[in-house]
Design a protein around this nucleic acid. Structure first.
Lengths: 186, 186
DNA sequence: GTCTATAGAAGGATAGAC
DNA sequence: GTCTATCCTTCTATAGAC
C-alpha cells in the first residue's frame, strides 16, 4: 500500500504502472496481483482507507464552541494533515484535477453532506456576529485551497524558493493563521 | 493544439494517448504525428505557448502604483485568467502536482526571478506601511492557491454544490477580493 | 497532407512451477 | 506466497500507398 501510494500520488492513476508499484514494494508484479485484484483495486483500497481520515478535521468542528477558535483549530488540523500526509493529499489532488472520476460518489455524498452541515454552523456563527459575514462555502474552499497548496504544489514552492527553504511548509502555519485571523475578525 | 490541451489537461501527460488527441482533433493518429514530432513535442509546444501568458498578470504588478490597488488588480487578473483558461490552469496543475518534471527549468528560472523581483516590491510596500506586514512569498502563494483553486479543483466544487451553482467561479471574485482586502489592510 | 497497415515496446493480467 | 514465463491489449511511432 505504501509503495502504491508513492507511485499513484506521483504519477496519477493512469500514469502509474504495476511494475513501478511492484519494484517499489520489493515484490514481483504477479505477487502484487496476488494481494490485490487488479490495478484499480489497489487505487480503490488506498482511497477508501483515506476518505474517512480526510473528513475528520471538518467533522471535528464543534457547533457549540467559539467560532474563531473552532475555525482556527480546523485550519491547524488541515495544515497538519497536509504536512504529515503530503502524498495522500496529492493522491486526492491528482484525482480531482482530472475530474474526480473515481471519487465522484464520495464528493457528491458524504463530503457534500458534511460540508452542507458545517456551512450551516458557520452561517449561524456569522449571523450571531461572532465572525465576519462571508459566504460559508467559499470560506471552507479557501481553507482547503490554502492548506493543501503547500502539499499539492510543493514542487512549485520548492523550485521557487530553493535557496531559502527546504520544507515547503516553512512558515505556512504562522502565515495562514495570521491571515484567517484577519479574515474572520467581525 | 486545442484537442491536445483538452486531453492533456484532463488526464495528465502519461494518462493521455495520441488516439484520444487524434480523435478529438478529427484526424488520424499518424496525421497528428505529421505535425508534431511525437507525444512529448505536443506537450512541450502547449506549455511553451502558455508559460509567457501565465507570467503576464504578475509581470504587470507596477512598483510605482498604489500597493493595495496593484495587488487587488493582480488578483483580479489571476482570477480572470483561471476562469477564462481553466484547461490551461489544469495543464499546469497536473504538471506541478506530479513534481513538475517538464517545467522544472521554467519554475527555477523565469518564474523564480520574477517572483523574487515582485516579492521585493511587495516587501517595500509593507515596509512603507502601505499594506500589512506579511511574508511576501507566502502572500503570492496564497493568491495563487485561492485563484487557481476554482479552476484546478473545479470538479470538487461542482460535486459539492451541484444544486446551487453551475459555475465553480460563482461568487469567487467577490469573495477573494473581500478577503484580500481584509488581509492587506495595514 | 492524409490515410491504412503494422512494427515494436510497454502495460495489465494469468498460468503454472516451486 | 512468490516467482518466471507468457498472453493479450494498448500505446507510440513508422512505412508506404494515395
Amino acid at each position: 500500500m505504501d509503495a502504491a501510494l508513492q507511485v499513484f500520488s506521483a504519477h496519477g492513476f493512469r500514469g502509474s504502472t504495476l511494475d513501478q508499484i511492484a519494484i517499489n514494494a520489493g515484490l514481483s508484479k504477479p505477487n502484487v496481483l496476488y494481494y490485490f485484484n487488479g490495478k484499480e483495486a489497489i487505487h480503490v483500497a488506498l482511497l477508501s482507507d483515506l476518505l474517512d481520515t480526510w473528513l475528520d478535521p471538518l467533522r471535528a468542528l464543534n457547533p457549540n464552541g467559539n467560532a474563531r477558535d473552532e475555525l482556527l483549530a480546523y485550519i491547524r488540523r488541515k495544515l497538519e494533515l497536509a504536512r504529515n500526509f503530503p502524498r495522500e493529499s496529492r493522491l486526492f489532488a491528482n484525482e480531482i484535477v482530472q475530474g474526480a472520476p473515481r471519487i465522484e460518489n464520495f464528493l457528491k455524498g458524504e463530503l457534500r453532506i458534511l460540508v452542507d452541515e458545517k456551512a450551516a454552523v458557520i452561517a449561524e456563527w456569522m449571523d450571531a456576529g461572532q465572525i465576519a459575514k462571508l459566504d460559508p462555502f467559499h470560506l471552507i474552499f479557501s481553507i482547503w485551497a490554502l492548506t493543501q497548496h503547500y502539499s499539492d504544489f510543493e514542487a512549485q514552492i520548492r523550485f521557487i524558493r530553493a535557496d531559502n527553504i527546504t520544507d515547503s511548509h516553512d512558515g505556512a502555519q504562522s502565515f495562514v493563521e495570521t491571515i484567517f485571523d484577519k479574515i474572520l475578525a467581525p
